[in-house]
Simulated scan of single mutants.
Amino acid sequence: MRATVWHGKRDVRVENVPDPVIQEDTDAVIRVTSSGLCGSDLHLYEVLTPFMTPGDILGHEPMGIVEEVGPAVTGIEPGDRVVVPFQIACGTCWMCRKGLPTQCETTQVTEHGMGAQLFGYTKLYGAVPGAQAEYLRVPQAQYGPIKVPQGPPDDRFVLLSDVLPTAWQAVQYAEVPKGGTLVVLGLGPIGAMACRVARHLGVEVVIGVDLVPERLERATHDGTVALDLSAFDSPDDLVAAVRDLTGGRGADSVIDAVGTEAHGSPVAKFAQAATGLLPRSWAERLNETAGIDRLSAFETAVSLVRRGGTVSVSGVYGGAADPLPMMTMFDKQIQLRMGQANVRRWSDDILPLLTDDDPLGVDTFATHHLPLDRAPDAYAMFQKKEDGAIKVLFQP
């Protein structure tokens, strides 16, 4: 089959690899019909390279048709149309029963002290072959795949693999009070969808911050108050503008949908780039003990939120020695929530919205539909934020 394969920093290729097969009784194999390119994939393309191995298959946002199931798999059968959550979980352990499949005790990558396995990610999360491919082996298929109706185009459902539950969890974790104000930092796929989810759930004022014109225009069209980061001379000016919109106190809640590759952190950016030049074993050890993130988005979130407010982090961070503004966070009495989205925790709430009149606008959310062979170009385009790329879907 054809698959998107990682070979090094900014080096992904579409190559022929062996077809997946059933290995465990709880496996399934699906024929992928759509697979997303995620902002988290860009971290593998640029920052988290020490934890990757040449030959790793990328991608974690698939849907498709079930081709084969193991003998222990019930609930789905060949011919069914399914969306596959990006995390791999059993559904029956203590963590899964608590609504935390990202912490599944059956698939935790204990040798690295990490949570549940993820498709198409680093060895810290099991290095499970990913979904930017023609076929995908799905472990724990007795629980993970979500059966969806036949008929509507893939765009209606594919975002249920990651974008929708990640945005939904970010808004839920933000705990915006009735009549309150939410700021969303970063209007890429997760931030843009978080704005839509927040408005759908009744948040009265949603403010989105970015510096890409196409993203700001789209947010404005969605009813978000869009602020162009490049229009402010300093972070203090952005804070002042948000306070002007929030009665002088700041936002009740802030979502950081940016993560480790934020703009405005030159020292951390240099450190990340320098780590990429080290031998792999050295770079891996350094990241595990002294890795740092570009924290400008998180620090901005702390500045923007009102005293007693909540910061919800959905952007991916990977540092081990980040200098957090602890004094400010403590003084402002900020609540902080974060983590990978627990897809099956939220999917039952979201799925009804995908079978009616499309209130979240998923049918037109993707900006690019490309054949899988265009994956190298798509990664470069998405990283550089060219051609209005907000959400890319591959169609193998």
Rank of each mutant, 00 (worst) to 15 (best):
V239Q: 10
L37W: 06
W346F: 15
V206G: 00
G339Q: 05
P101D: 07
T224Q: 00
H7Y: 15
P177F: 12
G99Q: 02
G319K: 01
A268P: 06
F365I: 03
Q103N: 13
P177C: 14
T106R: 12
G64N: 02
D233R: 14
D348Y: 13
I350T: 12
R280F: 06
L42V: 01
G79Q: 02
S312W: 03
T260P: 08
A226P: 05
P54Y: 04
G180N: 04
W282P: 06
Q140E: 14
D233W: 10
D19I: 04
L42I: 11
V239G: 01
Q108W: 14
T310C: 11
V362I: 15
F330G: 12
E261W: 14
L100G: 06
D155W: 04
R10M: 11
P235Y: 01
P85A: 04
E204S: 07
V343W: 13
Q150S: 14
D56L: 15
T181M: 05
G75C: 06
T92C: 12
P145V: 05
C195P: 00
F382A: 15
V82F: 00
K269H: 14
A380K: 11
D228K: 01
K385Q: 14
R280I: 03
P149Y: 04
T110A: 15
Y125L: 15
L48M: 13
E214W: 13
R13P: 05
E24R: 15
D358K: 03
G180P: 07
P54R: 07
T107N: 06
D331G: 11
N16Q: 15
L124V: 09
L136D: 02
A297M: 09
A301Y: 01
T102L: 04
V12E: 05
R31C: 07
L324N: 02
T102K: 08
D373F: 08
T367E: 00
V316P: 06
R285K: 13
S265W: 00
L164S: 10
T328N: 10
I334W: 05
D25W: 06
M52K: 03
V302E: 01
C90F: 03
P152Y: 05
T181S: 09
D357W: 00
N287D: 13
G291W: 00
L304T: 09
A273D: 10
V362H: 03
G247H: 04
V84R: 00
L118K: 09
L187R: 05
G99L: 05
A375R: 01
A127W: 09
A231M: 11
S303W: 06
Y379W: 08
M114D: 10
G120Q: 04
G8K: 08
V205G: 05
G247D: 01
N342P: 05
